[in-house]
Design a protein around this nucleic acid. Structure first.
Ligand SMILES: [Mn+2]
Ligand SMILES: [Mn+2]
Ligand SMILES: [Zn+2]
Ligand SMILES: [Zn+2]
Lengths: 149, 149
DNA sequence: GGCACTATCAGGAATAATTCTTATTATGAA
DNA sequence: TTCATAATAAGAATTATTCCTGATAGTGCC
């Protein structure tokens, strides 16, 4: 329903305290936090910040190319401070999202223009699996399917 | 393209009129409609149906393997009556989603278990581009953003 | 410093998609 | 028919996100 904003389409505006802290907190983690996870982290340093400010600044930082907004499966948006091109793997049980270090498979896009008529500008590849933690737990308990960690 | 290990995990319950019409309407189209698009179609035949019933039955039909629930980018869920394995391409401008007829690239999943520790059960590959219709309409804005989800 | 101008803020309302609750109705077995 | 169960319509609730508003804070100019 929303129009897609072009990446790098916005000049970096002034770096406010809130924006700085959001950027720092996102840089600290290897996970791929949602807006409200970032909000909780940032609030420890800026207790008066609002969730709206977090959303707005994540959008701004993403627009000017300082962070990346992930478009993964699931209803909640996730953000990534790591700008190098990489894929992700998601645990179906605990929803954890981790990096997959691999060369982008640009060859996948070959010949698709002919096949579809679309001008192909990219692709999203996301692996689905069960993380080591959840594998261990399902062996141990033999049941349970949510909220690990 | 998640493997079909746990589809059919629910036995098909009785086929009600509402469920039947939802299935038929989804079977009619080549597009990948959202729940409310299906709701609008179905309502022409069953004007008293509720959106909640559409959601509930799409869930049930998907659980028992009669349709598939797509896990694409974007905040709105889409459904597909076509159960054969295939990929999709999404137009960034008009959000249209169309099929990509291609062999599943199962080789992508090779070696990921070693690299990540995850037990890989599938992958989701979605191409991003501009559809022929939107190419015609757009003003040569040469955007080039390789999005690797 | 004082002033205008603008960006950003906090807080909360609004929106959108989806799920849940409740009272009612349909189905089918005994 | 009687009864238990499954499914329904309607709408409330929830969740994630965006938008609005009035207040505040940074910037350039005098
Ligand atoms: Mn990452
Ligand atoms: Mn399809
Ligand atoms: Zn896990
Ligand atoms: Zn298009």
């Amino acid at each position: 329903m929303k129009k897609q904003t072009n990446s790098l389409s916005r000049q970096m505006p002034r770096m406010t305290r809130q924006r700085q802290v959001i950027l720092e907190e996102l840089g600290k983690v290897k996970s791929h936090p949602t807006a409200d996870e970032i909000y909780r982290k940032v609030r420890r340093r800026l207790p008066r910040i609002s969730l709206g400010t977090v959303y707005r600044n994540l959008e701004i930082l993403s627009d000017c190319g300082s962070i990346s907004k992930l478009d993964l499966a699931g209803r909640q948006r996730r953000f990534d401070g790591d700008l190098t091109p990489h894929y992700h793997v998601r645990c179906v049980q605990c929803e954890r999202v981790e990096d997959v270090r691999a060369e982008p498979h640009t060859e996948l896009e070959k010949s698709l223009t002919d096949a579809t008529g679309y001008r192909i500008i990219g692709h999203r590849l996301e692996f689905i699996g069960i993380c080591p933690r959840c594998q261990k737990r399902s062996h141990a308990t033999g049941r349970r399917a949510a909220a690990c960690g």
